[in-house]
Design a protein around this nucleic acid. Structure first.
Lengths: 332, 332
DNA sequence: ATGAAAGCGCTAACAC
DNA sequence: GTGTTAGCGCTTTCAT
């Protein structure tokens, strides 16, 4: 006797004394029903605690009501990506869409993604097989930063990291640094590669020999410290250090101290990704603010615009980023 | 002429010269079809790049193929939660399920969650309205740590934080600390409340006046520093500081230094949540390792077991946690 | 402005 | 061992 399972549209319609068609239209504001009817149906639905079955809805339409989100797993320790995720969820939620996390398993062996209407790729790596499958799939994709592999996304959200690094290097120069070094991030991401290019370019334009060390993704703090240590030995003239990998600036700090360098005066230190710990390290570290939450929201918004046909394929959107100058680059 | 949309089961069946039922069974290993037929269908499906429509599947069955995951937004900056998420995704992916991130918007105003078969709640706060709606919903829920509000979850994954804090305090005592203080986390989470209780209990047992300051969730580093500063003024005899909120130990460090305390000798410092920056701060900070990735995986596994009927409702699972002793509690 | 009916792709009864 | 048929709950023509 007792009902089993959730209330269906048919039941609501019956209770309201209208057809399912009318009930459906009323609940979706289809402008088809009279105000009176709509109100009646809405109240009936509310009273019966009706909520639409999304599976049925997406079976009928061609929409799943969800977008996928893939992040390079190796990077997921970072605060940057957590904020990015929140941005995506914010924006998707505002349009009543779910966000499904995509890992290696989800890319069906056939390379199809039935469960989502589109995909967001956060900072895709050239070496990530999941990213490659996603890019090859026949589904709208928005990447945050360009995908460095073959193929192109339906949309791209990016920032001018080259210009920002140049600005940072100019700032260091103004603070007295003549021999900046770059602790670079791997060039398998577009971001990492762009920073390396911009650095080399700047050095060429300022007649200083480029001091650059590339760290692989996921390098531990130990590796960072060792690398910084060796940098101090091979290039003792270095008077500024720009750290690209998230967390590497904080990790570099003790190594610089041990070598007897006074950070902020004797040696300037800056980071290419901001994070809470480096705002409160001693001294606080100057950093580029990538605005990850905004980037996540913008990526989701662009994807949804493309899916809905409000934005054309191939759209590229540039997001402003900022530079937070702190004590670590005050200068002597 | 050209096909539109993805290949359907009907098409595969037709191409293979069998009925849709047989095709369906063959692709799901239902043990109904002959090995020969199954192979035929599988190859046909693969050739046609068929992949099942999950919307249709969940409409027919009563499964959505996804679980929801809700985290207290205020905490999402922390590395702990990022790891927790990865644990959940790992485990769900292993069982071919999607993970949908649940925010305020998703809890349909009616309190139903059609899009998921169950929900994981990471460290639910008594004050979180979304958590409350989830707990009230008619759907299996597993919480990581107990839900401090009314109602009870179908399953709980937890650790013995009280015992671990006691162990930590004993360690501090052995290292010479006689007057430990607790920078407590808000008691709106079960974890935060448990730590406060255990601390007070320990103090009572060791005849020392409890020095305790509670920080609200999401307290900024500035607030942490101010609180530590005031603690040093009001309780100058304090010789050890245990910091509960994620990130607060690192933030406390400069405040302690400014006050002229030598961390690791003069004053011992420890954290209740581990994170990368504090492993490499100067000095490295002793911390409780909550094993968040394991906790996430265990939560998802328990949820799936409950949904599948492999585990009874009301199951509680205790997860071991660890203590990583570092230089900050070496002692004088 | 409203209703009847078809059908999205799949799986579970029920035949044979 | 395999095929036929009836829906899952919804949206969408097409009538009225």
């Amino acid at each position: 006797m007792g009902r089993v399972g959730p209330v269906t549209l048919v039941e609501v319609a019956r209770a309201a004394g209208v057809s399912t068609t009318t009930a459906s239209a009323a609940l979706r504001n289809s402008g088809r029903v009279s105000a009176r009817t709509r109100e009646l149906v809405e109240q009936t639905a509310a009273r019966m605690r009706y909520s639409p079955n999304t599976a049925a809805r997406s079976l009928r339409g061609a929409r799943t009501g969800a977008i996928g989100l893939h992040l390079p797993e190796i990077l997921t320790r970072s605060e940057y990506f957590m904020s990015f995720v929140l941005g995506v969820v914010d924006e998707a939620g505002a349009q009543d869409l779910d966000v499904v996390l995509i890992t290696g398993r989800h890319a069906g062996s056939d390379g199809r993604f039935h469960r989502v209407d589109g995909l967001v790729l956060g900072d895709p790596l050239a070496t990530d097989p999941v990213a490659a499958r996603i890019m090859a799939a026949d589904i709208p994709v928005v990447t945050c930063e360009r995908y460095p592999g073959p193929g192109s996304a339906a949309g791209v959200v990016l920032s001018d990291h080259g210009a920002m690094l140049t600005e940072l290097l100019d700032h260091l120069l103004a603070a007295g640094a003549r021999r900046p070094a770059l602790l670079a991030s791997s060039s398998v991401s577009d971001w990492g590669a762009t920073l390396q290019r911009a650095f080399l370019e700047w050095c060429r334009g300022h007649d200083c020999p480029p001091i650059l060390r590339e760290l692989p993704y996921g390098a531990t703090s130990e590796v960072v410290r060792e690398t910084v240590g060796s940098l101090l030995v091979t290039d003792p003239g270095m008077d500024a250090l720009v750290c690209a990998p998230d967390g590497s600036a904080v990790a570099a700090l003790p190594a610089l101290r041990e070598a007897g360098r006074a950070v902020g005066t004797d040696l300037l230190l800056a980071a290419c990704v901001d994070s809470t710990p480096q705002q409160h390290s001693d001294p606080p570290i100057t950093a580029i603010d990538l605005r990850p939450r905004e980037a996540g929201a913008a990526s989701a918004r662009l994807l949804l615009d493309i899916i809905a046909g409000r934005a054309p394929h191939g759209t590229e959107q540039v997001l402003p980023i900022g530079l937070d100058v702190r004590a670590s680059t005050r200068g002597g």
